[in-house]
Design a protein around this nucleic acid. Sequence first.
RNA 1: GCCGGAGUGGCGGAACUGGCAGACGCGCCGGACUCAAAAUCCGGUGGCCGCAAGGCCGUGAAGGUUCAAUUCCUUUCUCCGGCACCA
Length: 847
Amino acid sequence: MAEQNTTGAGGTAASGYDPQKVEAKWQKRWAEARVFETEADPSKPKYYVLEMLPYPSGTLHMGHMRNYAIGDVVARVKRMRGFNVLHPMGWDAFGLPAENAAIKNKTHPRTWTNNNIAEFQRVLHRFGFSYDWRREISTCEPEYYRWNQWFFLRMLERGLAHRKKSLVNWCPKCRTVLANEQVINGGFCWRHEETRVESREIEQWFLKTTAYSDQLLDDLKQLEGGWPERVILMQKNWIGKSHGAKVKFAVAGAAGAGPIEIFTTRIDTIYGATAIILAPAHPLVTKLLEGSPMRAEAEPKLAQMRQTSVKTEDLATMEKEGFFTGRYALNPFNDEMLPIWVGNFVLMEYGTGAIMAVPAHDQRDLEFCRRYKLPVRVVVQPIDGEELVAEKIETAFDEPVQGKLVNSGPFNGLSPEEAIAKMTAFAEQKGFGCGETVYRLRDWGISRQRYWGTPIPVVYCTKDGMVPVPDKDLPVLLPPNPKLTGEGESPLAATPEFVNTKCPKCGGPARRETDTMDTFVDSSWYFYRYCDPHNDQAPYDSAKVSYWFPIDQYIGGITHAILHLLYSRFWCKVMRDLKLVQHDEPIQRLFTQGMVLKGGVAMSKSKGNVVGAIEMAEKYGADTGRLYTLFAAPPEKDLEWSEESIEGSWRFLNRVYRLIERHAEAVRSVKGGKVEAVSASLKEKTLLRRAHQTLRRVTSDFETRWHFNSAIALIMALANEISDHEPLEQGVRPEVRKEVLELLTLMLAPMTPHLAEELWEMLGHAEGLWKVSWPAFNQELAREEEVEIPVQVNGRVRGRIKVAVGSAESDVVRLALALPAVAQHMNGKRVVKQIYVPDKLLNLVLG
RNA sequence: GCCGGAGUGGCGGAACUGGCAGACGCGCCGGACUCAAAAUCCGGUGGCCGCAAGGCCGUGAAGGUUCAAUUCCUUUCUCCGGCACCA
């Protein structure tokens, strides 16, 4: 790729195509004509297409670009199809990198952020994406984040925002709290993949996502067909609903301790319980140890376990460890005394933090009981297959559908399914248990001990306690000049002019909350703001939102399958309950595009493998860059960036340019008139047929299949076909050339909009292509007259015949049998069966 | 471990509902133009055998269903992604 400047941006003597000039020209015209500006208009069908808003971080690379190129194709196709299209863009502008960069460069996070935004704007403009820029939002502006605060206050009123002391994931490098979702690989920071997350106990603000567990789960049904199945599945798993029962076990002989409540999905196996196991963090553990003979031995183990248990490190492979508390619990079903243990594999965060160990029917319990020599008792025998013997079990029998109960008193003989129902009812009747549904989903911790985020709008008054900031005092502004050192816990706490305030209730001295909000708050509702971006009375006008919503098509990376999309769904449900929207789900269709890789990994600054979008635009032009990212792979797949292959797209656009340049003058002289199939010559018919066949397939690739790569392949093939018929002057009238070349141009328009405008103008149109509708497919012109049918003998192609479309089977067979190659392979044998797929294929099966 | 997804030429990929595997592009080979190069244009390009006509093999592997399988079924291997002591 040395000395490539003659190839790229400079253009070549062989072609007049100068993308730099063409693209600037049309971008200017679009802006002057305000082509992409749009207003709610109930008389027109709407289409809301949105790409996930970017975090403006230094360089806009080809990975971003691909996302926007896909969205822009959709937006432009829908516009050509007559929709009123909303296609906005904005900035996810709060966040840690800005703050870290500010510390490093001794500037303000705002400076860094706004510089990056300016750069992103420049690149997006350079690519000519069809955004309504008047709607641009930046989440770090008070006019935006005041509504974060407003929503927070509404949630506070409804009990959906609350404070609780909790163990949090603390990243020593970020010096802040991470959400569970931000802890990856079993204990590492999502931003610093080599940094192990620690745990600390701090007062934190939470949003009550768990209040909507069932709705978040059930409403996934509304998304089926519109969202990728795997995303729905990932959310389902994340919510992790499971049915079971809670059972209380009375504790024998420990004053003030108990009863212990356990959660199980297999109450049918309760006669097989041989121990009770508590999570190390379980509050009863300390009480149980008081006065226990095992106390001295157990306490150091507990201390050690409590320290390490919260570190999720290597959970899966970690040895199951535990100790006996010296206490016993009573199994309410059979009054059996069960030893109470503490086990490192029992999680305080799930269920009740306590389990019954049924070693015969749970693999984890089995491993634990074998290790500590606890007894194993079989209570479910398989219906068919070998009878289980407790002493010999190596793998727990945990398949509930194929068994029947034994050793279970009055429940013997029942299937596990029946037993679960009857035993749950029995427990409820006796008052020591009940059916229970538990979730894996937890509340969303939004507190961050950082500067560059939305201040949480509450104050603490010595007299009145926690007091919400009144709506009229919003926004709570970030102090303009924080001390950002990267040391200590929160920059806001170190800024007295921010912290010290007056209590809104009593007017006395008060302290402001110094936590700021997780940036996922910003991105949970930003797409509503686009509908009404400058409203200073409310987050948005509901009428506008109800016109544009739900989002018809959302496009972004699979990386946001859980966090962003789950929080957004939650936010929507809260807004619905606040009567701010009417729908249950904000996003009707979701498309997750693949990443752009370089050297097998996603482009990122830290990996140093970024291909800058602006460099591509300067070298080849925006249209070539857009076309290539769409052509190189189907949009949902990852794409390995290849500097070599992009040349193909560049060459193709030059070919098209030269082709149209060559015929522009002849075409321009054509005065109106539709092309009729009847009057066309053979050569003309071929071209018209090919053009309309291409149109049919490209239309479906754009609208339903989203196979942009194969759509482009078809358009390339059409261009090749046209060139193959050169010189068109011989036998192709200008009006036919016009029809064919215009179709070619219009089909390219959604992907290479600048070039298409230029070609459209060259073809003699005074009005911009942006005013033109998607072309109508002409069935008559597309119809084939003759087809070539492969003739198979015993399933192998032995010859081909040309017949008129719709020929009778008997005629086709007669012609086929006359082929010498077919006769030769018949080898005197008889045809025992013939399969004819009309106009497609003939297969002769010999006896 | 569980749940998804994917394996097609040297490479990216195409093949819509079971009907001609390899469209389109990259790369490569050959040719034209040129003093030469770049650009452009033309031709070739899955493997094996063959001078050729042609034949055989071929969509991760092995079976199966079918007149016909990249496509459907069973088994299996590899890679990628998600979740993971969730009781």
